[in-house]
Design a protein around this nucleic acid. Structure first.
Length: 603
RNA sequence: GCCCCUGUAGCUCAGCGGAUAGAGCAGGAGCCUUCUAAGCUCUUGGCCGCAGGUUCGAGUCCUGCCAGGGGCACCA
């Protein structure tokens, strides 16, 4: 069977008029189609499958919007030829409202074409829906999300970029999906270097009273380090200072707190520039967990999970071996009595799952830490800190590499400070904005910021986070192709047309899909929920990026082919197209927002 | 030595066991008396590292090689 062509070629109205929108199911169209296919199989062949087992996929074939790949797999189980199963699906499909055409093709594919009436109604309904068709989680969970994790007395560098950007996108995605998310920033604010740093503060004339600032955090750290290595007397003072810090000496703690505050101001500046949502209240540094470590180790000991090895208290979670094939330890207390990061991370699990009642623990940390987290999670399950009701996920990400395949460096060859990298991105954007924008200087500066920061974020988020990613300055700052600017530009064009129209599209506007570009755009808009679901499920922002780029290119093709405000465009068609434009803008703005990228109305 | 990750167009990357593997950039040819050309249309370019296997069907799953990266006891 060939597709019946429901549209009037060259005409305005397609699909059944007066199509009923009521009772429309939102969410992923593929899931809806899967449910219909499942129903068809139940009626036709008495087979029970889930919507997911219907294997509905978007189709790239001309004339098909989706395809169902279930028949081939079922054929074997049922002892029925696959094309016959496929035909049974087609014959029993109860979807006149939703599907306009079906076709059995190849070995047993069922091609599905959505009805234009349904698609038009669904696209029109987007305007009235704040969530643009995306379902809210049926069973919201409680997430604790660890990301960014800079160090006190060190400037944030490019190594913190991915954790910050990815973590923030995951935060926004999960919250939008209807979950409760508590971010926590695992600040490196404790340990032996702080004796050295505090002594250096004292030498610099700092007093517990406060009022001091550090203009160059890295310089401060390096100066302390140099003194520590060169001056034995200073080194002794530093060691003594660590003891006082650990024992809770008040003046020492006051100085330490000032150092933390000073560093926090720096982080807040970077977060503000980057548009990262972390605040002071989200700081849960190593110092926060420090008082919990004794008890955590005691607890592990009490549960009989520890063994002393070479003077260190260790947990040996099953399944991990070292290079000699012996069990690999998680060292919870070092032989010198101190604690390492294994103890701290076990304490984080115990705190967030136990004390705070979180169901899902997420750690946005580089992939080299994969084994460490696997061991921490395994040990946490042994200790009962994590139960069957908990999930713990290491959201790993690859390294940022330069063009030479090595760790990224500045053009001069130094390590890249985040603040400088972001400033360069904004400066670069500002040059391009200045060439093109007719806005005043203040507005241009805002646009440059949105564009420059967006470029940095999108360059990161649009790649599969688990892989290393090579970035080059030219690509990160690029303003053409698959970049955030392309999405922002498409959105700005939407706003330009909407503004010029002098109207606000009414959610009740009837959407007409008379051209292939209009239909393609409606279809793209309706696919947002599937993209968001996929990005959330896999903590995979790049899946949302891919969708948004697809939606934007589809819009641009529509924009190119379908005049809207030209004089010869009939009023109903103009209204319909404006509704599509408005919906497109909403989708792009929401999508970019979930990535933490701004969507200015004017570029 | 063991474990993990990666290998897809010249470059950077998508690709969910399904049909003829897709984008962007770079290369080639066109498109502005403008609803924003930061754009659009057309086009060149592939032994999906190699070899087996499983399957009706493999870039995708399994095994073995090759190449690159990472991890493997007191730094975090």
């Amino acid at each position: 069977m060939r597709w019946t062509r429901p549209g009037i070629l060259g005409g305005l109205l397609v699909g059944p008029p007066n199509h009923e929108v009521t009772g429309m199911a939102y969410g992923d169209v593929g899931v809806e189609l899967g449910a219909r296919v499942a129903g068809a199989l139940r009626r036709g062949l008495g087979v029970e499958i889930t919507p997911a087992e219907a294997v509905i996929r978007p189709s790239t074939r001309p004339g098909a919007d989706y395809q169902c790949n279930a028949a081939m797999a079922l054929a074997k189980k049922l002892g029925t030829p696959p094309r016959q199963v496929a035909q049974a699906i087609v014959d029993n499909l109860d979807s006149a409202d939703l599907v306009a055409g079906t076709e059995v093709a190849g070995p047993g594919f069922v091609n599905l074409k959505l009805s234009d009436g349904w698609l038009a109604a669904r696209a029109a309904a987007l305007l009235a829906d704040d969530r643009l068709g995306v379902d809210s989680a049926a069973e919201p969970r409680r997430f604790a999300l660890d990301y960014s994790s800079p160090n006190v007395a060190k400037e944030m560098h490019v190594g913190h970029l991915r954790s910050s950007i990815i973590g923030d996108a995951v935060l926004r995605l999960l919250r939008f999906a209807g979950h409760e998310v508590t971010p926590h920033n695992h600040l490196g604010d404790w340990g032996t270097p702080f004796g050295m740093l505090i002594e250096h503060l004292v030498d610099e004339g700092w007093t517990p009273g406060g009022g001091h600032t550090i203009s160059d955090l890295n310089g401060f750290y390096q100066a302390a380090r140099v003194k520590f290595d060169a001056d034995p007397a200073f080194a002794d003072r530093a060691r003594a200072r660590v003891v006082r810090l650990q024992s809770g000496d008040e003046p020492t703690l006051a100085l330490w707190q000032q150092l933390v505050d000073e560093s926090t101001r720096h982080f807040e500046g970077v977060y503000a520039t980057l548009g990262i949502q972390l605040t002071r209240d989200d700081l849960y540094g190593e110092s926060f967990y420090n008082p919990l470590l004794d008890d955590t180790v005691s607890d592990l000991e009490g549960k009989g999970l520890t063994r002393v090895s070479d003077g260190a208290v260790c947990v040996f979670p099953p399944g991990f071996t070292n290079r000699e094939g012996e069990p690999l330890p998680l060292i919870v207390r070092k032989s010198d009595g101190g604690y390492g990061y294994a103890a701290t991370d076990l304490a984080t699990v115990r705190y967030w799952a136990g004390e705070r009642g979180m169901t899902d623990l997420l750690y946005v940390v580089g992939t080299p830490q994969a084994q460490h987290f696997a061991m921490v999670f395994a040990a946490s399950r042994q200790a009962g800190y994590l139960t069957d009701g908990h999930t713990a996920v290491h959201i790993g990400f690859g390294s940022i590499l330069g063009e030479d395949g090595k760790t990224i460096r500045t053009r001069a060859g130094g390590s890249v400070k985040l603040a400088e990298l972001l400033a360069e991105a904004v400066d670069n954007a500002a040059k391009i904005v200045a060439e093109r924008s007719a806005q005043d200087a203040a507005a241009q500066a805002e646009v440059a910021r949105a564009v420059g920061i967006g470029a940095v974020k999108y360059a990161d988020l649009s790649n599969d986070r688990e892989k290393d990613y090579v970035f080059t300055w030219s690509r990160m700052l690029a303003t053409e192709g698959n970049t955030s600017v392309y999405l922002q530009y498409a959105n700005a064009r939407c706003h330009s047309v909407l503004t010029k129209s002098g109207t606000t599209p009414d959610p009740a506007t009837e959407v007409l899909l008379g051209t292939e570009q209009e239909r393609a755009l409606a279809l793209a808009l309706v696919r947002l929920p599937a993209a968001v679901d996929a990005a959330v499920a896999g903590y995979a922002p790049h899946k949302l990026c891919a969708y948004l780029f697809e939606a934007a290119t589809t819009f641009t093709a529509f924009y190119d082919a379908c005049p809207i405000l030209k004089e010869d465009v009939p009023a109903e068609l103009r209204a319909s197209r404006l509704a599509l434009v408005a919906a497109t803008s909403r989708v792009l703005t929401l999508g970019l927002g979930l990535l933490g990228i701004e969507a200015p109305h004017v570029l």
